[in-house]
Design a binder for these strands. Structure first.
Lengths: 129, 129
DNA sequence: ATGAACCTTCCAGTACAATGGAAGGTCAAG
DNA sequence: CTTGACCTTCCATTGTACTGGAAGGTTCAT
């Protein structure tokens, strides 16, 4: 399977696949006599895994760790569980932060809906922020 | 007021202040005979405004727009209101996305808490993702 | 044999908001 | 007069996940 076919099969681009290989997410592909990359069938599963990992909000660095564990013949289960737990904590923190920010912006937006340009002193630039 | 003092007064660094000037957020400072930057008092207010804008989740590009309007002697009120409204919409979308992602991760995390390593087939890399 | 479609490597750039460091100039105190 | 704190410019780098383009090699159909 050449790189274009793998890209097609996984809904990505050849550029991205080469980038994944260079970033250590995919093992260096076998080469044909021509120098073209020649992927085994399981490459499709690996790329699909990368996509699922991204959809789960994992970074490529985290996905790389999981793939490395698998490459070493181990099952990455407990590591994955740890990552998911960590990600959950990060998400909760991020959501809390955004909700607080949303409230702040909402207040500012309300205030700005009753404009009083004259009370904008130039040393504060804008009364509403 | 020299750059170090302005940095101190506004809780930032000289690096950042020069970066702001180069990025068009702050007008080019006056210079002393030595070539040192010599800031007027109102610089403190401008930098503080930049910080408040950032705290409100505005990008430096958006803050720059507001500051430009003020520099042209106008009051940026309606523009600010527009930006805040836009920001509110973005925040709502982002929060909704994160909540959905949180739910996904939560499910995965639950599933991963009952490990069954043997059912991880190598073509999917990890049963839990 | 020639053109299209595919592949290769390498280098550079995107957005964001700074940050780091080198090489050198200025100023006040001791 | 020297030391140290401060300032100057310029260039490069950080992290994330790619994306774009140049210059050239391969494969296949016509």
């Amino acid at each position: 399977m050449r790189i274009g076919q793998l890209a097609e099969a996984t809904g990505t681009t050849t550029k991205t696949l080469r980038f994944y290989e260079e970033s250590g997410l995919l093992p260096p592909a076998e080469r044909l006599a021509s120098g073209y990359r020649d992927y085994a069938e399981d490459a499709v599963g690996k790329v699909a895994f990368i996509h699922r990992g991204q959809a789960a909000g994992l970074t490529l660095a985290q996905i790389r760790q999981i793939l490395k564990i698998r490459e070493h013949g181990q099952t990455p289960c407990s590591h994955v569980q740890g990552l998911l737990g960590q990600r959950l904590g990060e998400l909760d923190a991020q959501i809390a932060e955004l909700l607080a920010l949303r409230e702040t912006i909402f207040q500012l937006h309300e205030k700005a809906s009753k404009p009083e340009p004259d009370s904008c002193s130039s040393d504060q630039v804008c009364r509403y922020i």
